[in-house]
Computed example of a mutant assay.
Amino acid sequence: MVDKEKNTVSNNSVNRPWMYNNLAAVGESGGTFKGILAGGIAGGAEILVSYPTEYIKTQLQLDEQPGKNKRYNGFMDVIKKTVKERGVFGLYRGVNIFLFFSVPKGAVRFGSFETLKSWTADERGNLNAKMRALCGLVAGVNEAIFVVTPMETMKVKYINDQRLEKPRYRGLIHSIATILKEDGFKGIYQGVTATILKEGSNQAIRFYLFETLKNKYRDGDPTVHVPKVLVSLFGIIAGVTSVFANNPVDVIKTRMQGLEASKYSSTWNCVQTVWKNEGLLAFYKGTTARLLRVTIELGFIFVAYDSVMDILTKILP
């Protein structure tokens, strides 16, 4: 049995969500500010590293069968054709939308989880199995409503626009203005139902598995320190599981947010249409790209977050 090192930080720091695992360790003075800033910077850095996989995933999910609308023959074909047509930076089309929303996305997700956890945890700071999933579910729903739906809608439209012979959008601000002008406020909330289903299930699965794995390692003692390498591994396991579990929802969300979403009368109609025209495998388009992104995201962000936090602690003691 590995000797589990006891945590030396105060009790109010234990059992934090994965992205803020070391937040309390920076000290009481300015700790929250440093944590938010470090999380935003780390999130932005993670996006710059992992975004091409998000771009590829979206292109594959927008690629319909049969006939002339199908442009790509898999993951590597997207890379090859995009780089040939637009250069390496073509793989970053739409990344500014992700960067713009990275801080509020993390704040809503983890803020919601922490708030709900503070209300429902037992006297030791632990959640039971049902509450781990429920807190994650509510956090994902809040994230979908307040941040992810407009972010994802604009991202999908922006990437979808590139597929046209003559792209219309000249940048982030122009794309937002055009969508609002043509479709109104509801234009940036296309696919909200599918997004709620995706983010709710995503975070329910991820937080449930992550918290469960941490609790298993600690044997129920929240004062036991979990090594960073295991925190990273637990996050990756949770993320990979969520990809396989809800990729069909992600495909439907992408279709409902694309430029051709008007051909679907509802989310359920989109499900039926994809099933009828493309078959079961269509619901798993982009799985490889999502798996790559989740592995990169949940493996990289810990190093980035801790590194930025160390720097901020020196600059802002």
Results as ranks from 00 to 15, higher is better:
residue 101 F to N: 06
residue 75 F to G: 10
residue 103 V to I: 15
residue 108 V to F: 05
residue 73 N to Q: 07
residue 76 M to V: 14
residue 80 K to I: 12
residue 92 Y to V: 03
residue 102 S to D: 15
residue 116 L to D: 05
residue 106 G to R: 01
residue 107 A to F: 02
residue 97 I to N: 09
residue 92 Y to K: 05
residue 89 F to N: 07
residue 88 V to G: 08
residue 92 Y to I: 05
residue 73 N to Y: 03
residue 116 L to T: 04
residue 77 D to E: 09
residue 109 R to A: 07
residue 78 V to R: 00
residue 81 K to F: 06
residue 94 G to S: 12
residue 106 G to F: 02
residue 73 N to D: 06
residue 91 L to E: 04
residue 108 V to E: 03
residue 110 F to K: 04
residue 85 E to P: 02
residue 107 A to Y: 01
residue 76 M to I: 12
residue 108 V to L: 04
residue 75 F to L: 11
residue 112 S to V: 04
residue 106 G to H: 01
residue 85 E to A: 09
residue 112 S to K: 02
residue 108 V to Y: 02
residue 118 S to L: 10
residue 91 L to P: 03
residue 76 M to H: 10
residue 111 G to D: 00
residue 82 T to D: 09
residue 97 I to K: 08
residue 116 L to Q: 04
residue 107 A to K: 00
residue 78 V to E: 00
residue 117 K to W: 02
residue 113 F to D: 08
residue 90 G to S: 13
residue 118 S to N: 10
residue 76 M to W: 15
residue 83 V to Q: 11
residue 84 K to G: 05
residue 94 G to Q: 10
residue 73 N to T: 06
residue 108 V to W: 02
residue 76 M to T: 14
residue 81 K to I: 07
residue 112 S to E: 00
residue 96 N to D: 12
residue 110 F to W: 07
residue 101 F to A: 06
residue 115 T to I: 00
residue 118 S to M: 11
residue 81 K to H: 05
residue 111 G to V: 00
residue 93 R to E: 10
residue 91 L to K: 02
residue 102 S to H: 14
residue 102 S to K: 11
residue 114 E to V: 04
residue 115 T to H: 01
residue 94 G to T: 14
residue 118 S to G: 08
residue 105 K to C: 15
residue 95 V to S: 11
residue 106 G to T: 02
residue 100 F to A: 11
residue 111 G to H: 02
residue 73 N to P: 08
residue 101 F to T: 07
residue 77 D to M: 06
residue 79 I to A: 05
residue 102 S to A: 14
residue 85 E to G: 05
residue 103 V to E: 14
residue 104 P to R: 07
residue 117 K to Q: 03
residue 90 G to C: 15
residue 85 E to V: 03
residue 91 L to V: 02
residue 106 G to A: 02
residue 112 S to W: 01
residue 95 V to C: 13
residue 115 T to F: 00
residue 75 F to I: 13
residue 77 D to F: 08
residue 112 S to T: 06
residue 107 A to V: 05
residue 81 K to T: 06
residue 76 M to Y: 10
residue 112 S to M: 01
residue 113 F to R: 06
residue 94 G to H: 11
residue 113 F to P: 07
residue 101 F to M: 05
residue 101 F to G: 04
residue 89 F to R: 05
residue 109 R to M: 08
residue 88 V to S: 10
residue 87 G to I: 12
residue 82 T to K: 04
residue 111 G to I: 01
residue 81 K to G: 06
residue 113 F to V: 11
residue 105 K to Q: 15
residue 101 F to H: 03
residue 100 F to Y: 14
residue 93 R to T: 12
residue 96 N to I: 14
residue 111 G to Y: 00
residue 76 M to D: 13
residue 104 P to T: 09
residue 107 A to L: 01
residue 109 R to V: 11
residue 75 F to W: 14
residue 115 T to M: 01
residue 98 F to M: 10
